[in-house]
């Protein structure tokens, strides 16, 4: 990745943000009943696992966790060379569940659109909420996050990257100019 790098969040700041989001999710949904976490591959699924852990620390309950791969739902096939197709792994029914969709960086909203299409193909959730670590703006679709770690105004040309360690723990968010 070219250009200048600025650290936006360090590991501690990320943990603080995720802890807050976990509390907000529980508050908004009045507990863990019917709650499930679905992370978007790859990045969002790691963060969803972190949130599951935090919710368990607060409530003592491990909410169901799944991952969704949106490659098959992208709207740009034929405009790129082939992307690897990952597996969607959701081992519980989604019908009437309160789904919290988790992603690392929210940008145009197209990924979230694709993820919602994928979820709807798997069942009929009662609600879908969206949790993201970073919202960098520049939305192209009418999509709004319910839980945000940090709002970060960016220019289009900048890039945001969430770094994970080998244990899939988030260790930093960096901005590249």
């Amino acid at each position: 990745m070219a250009g200048e790098m600025t650290e936006i969040l360090d590991s501690t700041a990320i943990q603080r943000a995720l802890t807050r989001i976990a509390h907000e999710i529980l508050e908004r949904n009045k507990g863990v009943d019917n709650l499930v976490l679905i992370g978007i591959r790859t990045g969002g699924d790691y963060l969803a696992a972190e949130l599951q852990q935090k919710i368990a620390e607060i409530e003592g309950v491990k909410v169901p966790l799944g991952t969704v791969d949106i490659t098959m739902y992208r709207d740009d096939l034929g405009h790129r060379s082939n992307l690897e197709v990952g597996q969607t792994d959701i081992r519980f029914p989604l019908n009437d569940r309160c789904v919290v969709l988790v992603d690392d960086v929210l940008f145009t909203g197209r990924t979230i659109r694709a993820a919602m299409d994928a979820l709807v193909d798997l069942g009929r959730p009662r609600t879908i909420q969206l949790a993201v670590l970073i919202d960098r703006g520049h939305r192209e679709l009418p999509i709004r996050p319910d839980y945000v770690g940090r709002n970060l105004p960016t220019s289009r040309s900048e890039q945001i990257e969430v770094q994970f360690n080998a244990q899939r723990g988030p260790i930093g968010v960096n901005l590249f100019k």
């Binding site: 992208r74 740009d76 405009h79 992603d103 929210l106 940008f107 145009t108 197209r110 990924t111 192209e140």
Partner: peptide
């Protein structure tokens, strides 16, 4: 393509 790719990297 590069543009679309980047936009989807959210």
């Amino acid at each position: 393509e590069g543009d679309i790719h980047e936009q989807l990297a959210d």
